[in-house]
Amino acid sequence: MTQTGAVPAKAPESEKITINLGHVDLGHIELLVREGFYSNRTDFIRTAIRNQIDRHADTVRQIVVRKSVDLGLRHITRDELATAQSAGQMLDIRVLGLVVIAQDVSADLAKDTIAGLSVLGTLHASEAVKAALADRIT
């Protein structure tokens, strides 16, 4: 999000997170970095996360199929929501990754067409749309 609350034209490639580690764990990471196993702390943490994701890949696939979750980027356009509105449909959107609701989607259109929005990852939308969907976002 930019300072004005607008969605950036191009979605960022990653999301920044902060973690707290104990001194001993951090020391182990530093030792592995100094010994050349990893280029830096971030490299170690990304590798550890990817290893855990790979370890649970079958479980994630089963959940995705069972819950009808979209993987990756889900871009929701005004045209898509207008089509749903014309058909009298309410959308239940579930995404593991990034959801971007287009800037030209009004809060009223979002509220009239999105019954539920479950995002395991990041949501980029205007503040007005987020406020309109606040009771439907999980």
Rank of each mutant, 00 (worst) to 15 (best):
G116F: 10
L91V: 05
T42P: 03
V105G: 01
T18F: 05
L71A: 09
K16C: 06
R61H: 14
V99Y: 02
K67I: 02
L32Q: 14
R55H: 11
R94V: 01
Y38H: 07
V65Q: 15
Q62C: 10
I114G: 03
Q3A: 11
A11V: 08
Q103E: 14
T2P: 00
V95W: 05
G72W: 13
K10M: 04
L81K: 01
N40K: 09
I45W: 02
G88V: 05
G36Y: 06
V24I: 12
L123A: 00
K130S: 07
D104V: 02
L91T: 03
R41P: 05
I114M: 02
L98A: 05
D58H: 15
D112K: 08
A11S: 12
D92R: 15
E127D: 14
Q52P: 12
K16E: 12
F44I: 01
S118H: 09
L71M: 11
E15D: 09
S126N: 04
I45A: 07
L120N: 11
N20E: 09
T42W: 07
A87C: 04
K130L: 05
L31Q: 08
A134N: 11
V100R: 09
K111R: 12
V24W: 10
D79H: 10
I17W: 08
G121P: 02
D43M: 08
H75K: 14
A128H: 08
A115S: 08
K130E: 14
F37M: 14
H23F: 10
